[in-house]
Each structure stands twice: as C-alpha cells, then as structure tokens.
Design a protein around this nucleic acid. Structure first.
Lengths: 209, 209
DNA sequence: CGAGGTAGAGAACTGCTAGTTCTCTACAAG
DNA sequence: CTTGTAGAGAACTAGCAGTTCTCTACCTCG
C-alpha cells in the first residue's frame, strides 16, 4: 500500500527449493544454538535465513513442524548398530550415542518441540508420527544378536524390558538439569538393563567402557 | 483516563487473601477441565474467578507458577503407602494410583506445566523444586517392607531400579496418546519391576487382581 | 527468444496473549 | 473518621503467529 520500495534488496540472486530449505534449516539450528528454543520465532528465522515468512509457511504448517524437520535434518544418519559380541558393551554404546545426541542441538530442539507437543495434541501427533522409536529399534537388534550368541534367553526379550533403559535415559533428559554423565549410563545398564535380560554381572570387561 | 465509570460492579462484596486464592485455583482447574491447558489464559482465569489480573500477578509470577500451585492444591493428600504383604500388589497399587492421578485434571495441568518447563529453564527449576519424587518415595517404602518380609534382597534396592517402573509410566504419560490401561501397568510390574527385585513370577495371586 | 506462471523477498497487517498500570473503591486497623 | 492495603475492572504496551499484499527473479514452454 504505502509506496516505499526504496533500496529494495529483492534483486539479489534468489534461492529456491532445496537450497532455500537448507538455508532455513541452518537458520533454525543456528538460532537454537545461539539463543535456545524459546527465543526462536518465525520472524527471526526468516530474517536470519533472508527468507520471507510466506516461504516458511508454504513449507511447514507451523513452528513445531519446522523445528522437527530441522532436527531430523541435523540428526546423524541411522547409527550403525553396534555388535561387539557383548550385550553390555552394545547396550552401553547405544545409550551413549543417545545421550550424546540429546545433549547437542538436536536435544535442545527436541526439548522444545516436546514441550509444545505436551500442550498441543496436534503437535503431539506430529511428534509421534516421527519418533518411531529409533532407540527401541537399535535395542531390538542388539538383543537379537545377544540371543543368537546364547547370552540371553529369548523369552526375556519383551517390549517393556527393552524400553526400560531408554525410558530412564529420556526421563533423565526431560527432568534432569545438568549434563548426562557416564556414571549414570553405566549404572542404568548394569543395574537395570542387564539384570532384566538375565545377565547379572558385568562379564567380559571388569570396569566401565 | 477516559472517564467512564458507568455501571461499575466494583461495589460487590470483595474477597481477600485465602478465599480469593481458592477461587482463583478453582477457576484454573475449571478452565483446564473444560478447555484444556493450552486454552488457559490469564485473562480467562481472571474473568472466571471474577478477579483482576493484577490480583493474579500479585500472587504468582506467571502462568506456570499459578497452574503448578493449582495442581498441587488439587492433589489428593499424601496417599497412604499400601502394605498388603505382597510386593507385587503393593507395586501395582502405587502404579495404579499414579496412573489415575495422571489421567485426571492434575495430569492435564502437569502436562501443560511440564511443556513449559521444557522450553523455559526458570519454569523447569520451579517444577524440580516441587516434584520431589513422590512416586519414588512410595516405592522406597514398599521396597523396605518387602525387604523386611524377606521377599527381596536388600542389595537389589537401588535408586535406578526403583525408578524403572515410574519412568515407564511417565514415558507412557508423556509420549503415549490414549488412556493408560491396566494391562500396561500389570506388564510393567510383572516384566520389569518384579524381576529387578528378584521376584520372577507372580506368586500370591495367579491373575491380575 | 519472449510470454506466462510459479515462487521468493520484504513489508504491512490482524488477532491474540502476557504482563503492566491506572482509577476507583471496599474493607480493615487505629 | 482517617488512612493504608488490596481487589475490581479496564486500558494499554509489546511481542509473536500467521496472513496477505506487492513487486520481481527465475524457470518453462511455446
């Protein structure tokens, strides 16, 4: 309406499709890394990415979906499932990978999105659609290997037992404050996960690692 | 500024202190029960309680603190810890109490507050200040009784093992969608909690009770 | 190569909510 | 009766989500 084209930066080379999306993801992650999830606004992302808000909303229905995609983008590829020949070490490795992921930017993004999911059922559905138990899949595979080795009775492998370790880790992530230290992970594995699968003492190695 | 006193309802009997606070809590809970946490605004609470927003902000620093207090108010008194003579039944009882609590208004309030806590460290601190592991305390007591009865080896009673059951319940609450059915609770108790404390099969009663 | 459609940049705008502040007034205490 | 405290109600500020508008670059198709 008000006729004020003025300097008009709209003549710069203009990005499209993939390239633009990537730039927007980068802006989201940078904002989160710099100021945290709660300071992340669509305006700031748009400005930082030198994109228009309309471009954002053409691609994602809202903030949660955007951040969810950005987090997914930032995730390392499907981690190769460890297979060291020891259930204990395999489990510990998965837990450590998970903890490292949660402590990074992806974790911060997840925290924020989860926060919204708790308040908004639509977002919750988006998240569920998405978080198809990555950790659980890896645990399943590890357990299958342990059964093959004869290290674990197959009757003990149930979804609830498999979830116990990851659930403790997530609870720590959600309710705890400081960083997740390794002692925690070791304790969860030795006191909860292994006993649940019939392995009552650290066997191969005598100490941590 | 604008001189429009008009009808002015400000002559009604005016509540103070305790009475007013209680009325505000009631309004908060009613709003949550009726429209959910996300539709809860300070304006609506104030209007519903026939209180002024200033009165709200004089008492609580923000929405989260208000809802947290209201939820605390609505909580049933410290549940008497069950002592049935069977670890299985005691545990199941605690889990059922917890599940029932989470499915009510208090649960909805918690969900909302937790959602904010995940996005705002200050709120997170308020919540931690507050949620001094109620479930854990009950579980501790139950386990102590089981040890006294000789049903459980005292060496097995550690914080991590104690947290396993509650953690699975909370995870279900946070990530799951529908109601928490009893089969879930029974499975958690029989497949996770009891094995962790050395009780490998349902003993007293044969079925779910 | 030129026309037309698609989509991006940037800005203005709407609507809602948190939180603040102002005025007026009830109520309690001295 | 005087005075201080606090509640009621409303106006106001500021910030953000989401929408819409204009202008224009770039791609595609004829």
């Amino acid at each position: 309406m008000t006729a004020v084209p003025g300097p008009d930066h709209r003549k710069l080379p203009r990005r499209r499709g993939e390239v633009l999306s990537r730039a927007i993801f980068d802006a989201v992650l940078a904002e989160i890394a710099e100021s945290g999830y709660s300071a992340l606004t669509m305006d700031r992302v748009a400005e930082r990415a030198h994109a228009s808000k309309a471009s954002l909303y053409r691609r994602w229905p809202g903030r949660a979906a955007l951040v969810l995609d950005a987090a997914y983008e930032a995730m390392p590829g499907p981690d190769t499932v460890p297979n060291t020949g020891s259930l204990r070490l395999d489990t510990l490795t998965v837990m450590r990978q998970g903890a490292r992921l949660l402590e990074g930017i992806v974790g911060q993004a997840m925290r924020g999105v989860l926060g919204e999911a708790l308040q908004n059922p639509d977002v919750a559905a988006e998240v569920r659609e998405f978080a198809r138990g990555n950790a659980s899949r890896m645990m399943h595979e590890i357990l299958a290997n342990a059964v093959d080795r004869g290290e674990c009775d197959p009757d003990l492998v149930t979804d609830f037992r498999i979830e116990a370790g990851p659930a403790l880790l997530r609870q720590r992530f959600i309710f705890g404050s400081g960083p997740i230290d390794d002692d925690f992970l070791v304790a969860v594995v030795d006191q909860v996960v292994l006993p649940l699968f019939g392995v009552h003492r650290p066997q191969g190695t005598g100490s941590a690692v």
